[in-house]
Structure formats: structure tokens, C-alpha cells
Write a protein that binds this DNA or RNA. Sequence first.
DNA 1: TCAAAAATAGGAATGATTACTATTTTATTC
DNA 2: GAATAAAATAGTAATCATTCCTATTTTTGA
Lengths: 135, 135
Amino acid sequence: MATLKHSKQRDAILNFLMSRKDHPTADVVYSHLREEYPNISLGTVYRNLTLLSELGQIKRLHIGDGVDHFDADTSQHYHFLCSECGAVIDLKMETIDHINQLAGVGFDGQIAGNITYFYGLCPKCSAKSGQQEGA
Amino acid sequence: MATLKHSKQRDAILNFLMSRKDHPTADVVYSHLREEYPNISLGTVYRNLTLLSELGQIKRLHIGDGVDHFDADTSQHYHFLCSECGAVIDLKMETIDHINQLAGVGFDGQIAGNITYFYGLCPKCSAKSGQQEGA
DNA sequence: TCAAAAATAGGAATGATTACTATTTTATTC
DNA sequence: GAATAAAATAGTAATCATTCCTATTTTTGA
């Protein structure tokens, strides 16, 4: 893969990801892309998602639910995972990179960064649970 | 599984985990346990690791390398993942739970906690890389 | 000792992801 | 615009971690 060649499928995958504020899995991307490209293969979706993340155009998220999620927003932000419905939501918050310093205290290696995500109840599930308790 | 019955295999799995300060995968546990129990099955290892983690006696770690790791140290601590050799190392550092407050600013859901791990070069790989640069 | 419940061994099944290959598409040169 | 080489695709097979299934064995309490 010396020089990169254009592909409609890759463009469509990136465009689809950019149109979403949730964080789709490869399978979700595949399902939606098939509406426009009925013959697109899951392998193509995976290959391009991997390629795009290696190019730094998207981020691959391992949030511990056993499936990779993808995010076209490459700006600095954090993720929240709803323990109830599994939704992955962006958190626009100040950086917490100062924790790297805390982690480095008394550690002889080099801390390059951290992976952090938050969990709990998303706004929707939080509202539901509030109602039920009240009822 | 109403009442829990004793099993030598489960004890051996927990003992093995407690004897290690790294964070073995199910397959590593399986390989070592086979020395003592040549007929132990991988299914038994997985079932007991899952059971023990549900009982809160061990922790299951998703560190994003595609394989689950297990940790018999259930006390508050953080983990470091070496980008070079894949080692998982304990970091004894002060709590960073204040980041939950930061994450909650302007978020309508409920933040219950965070999953955080650090990455970079472990002490050994850090030393090696330093030598090579110098040579 | 006996019986019921739980655990095991062994292997099959699942599900996400990657690998393989013949064909198609893209980009470049004439 | 045709010829060509490189890259991408579709479709499918393979891989790998993990879970599920079932007949047999172990544990435990009476």
C-alpha cells in the first residue's frame, strides 16, 4: 500500500462516521453502508476503519464491551459509557492529563499517556431511573 | 448455582493469580494450572475467572489489547500498559476519582466512576531504548 | 452411605476481526 | 482515450478469545 488510491467506499465510510455523534461499531457502519453500496463487504469496512485510524483520521475505541467503536471526532475529548443501555457519549471536558504526572511518581518507566473513560447512567437512563423510583 | 461448592480447581486458579504480580490472561492461567491439573479444561478456567470476578475476589481488566487480563489484587490501584512489550504493571498512586467531578460538569447523566489505564514504556523497555539511543 | 446440586472435562459453537484471492477500480503514462 | 501497474474490493475462509453444552465426576448435607 505504497501510495493511497481513492475509493468511494472509504469516502462513504468516513462520511458516515462524521455524520454520527454516537460511536458506531464496524457492523453498524456495514449495515448503513449497504443501503448505498449493497455489495460492500464487511472486510472492506474493517480494512478501511483500520486504515483511517492508522492515518489518524478517526479513532478506534476499546471501551471494554467486547466490540470496537469508531469515532470521527479526533479532537481532544473523553467518552462516557452508559452501564444501562451501552450508549457511548462524548464528554467535552477539560484535559485530565495531569494524572500522567501523578502516575509517574515513583515509577521508573515513561508515562506517555492515559486511556480514560467514564461510566454510569446516561441522561436518558438517568431520567428513567428517577421516574421509576418516584413511582 | 444457588449454593457454592468447593473445587480444587477454583482454589488453584485463585492461588495462582494471588502468586503473580503481573496480570495473566486466561490462557496463561490455563497453561500453568495444567502442570498441577493436567486435565483441567480451558472452560473451567474461564468459568471460574468469571465467577471469581463476579464474587469480587479478582478483577477482570480490559486493557484494549484484545485479551482479558485478571488481577487478584482488588485494592484501589491503577494499571500501566507497556506499548513495547505489552507488560501490565501496577501503579500505586493516589486516587484520581476527582476526575469524575470534572467529567460531570455540564453532563446530565450520572457519573458512577472511571476506567483509567496508563501507557508508555515500562522500566525495562525504557532502559533498553535509552541504551540504543546512546549507542 | 445416599442423593441432590454443583463443578468438571472435553468439545462444539459463537462472534468479532483478520487473511486470502480472483476480479474490479484507480491513477499514470503515452 | 487506450494500456498498464498498483491498490482496493467482494466474497469467503480462517483465526482467536470466549462461551455454551452435556455426560460424568465431585462435593456436601442428611
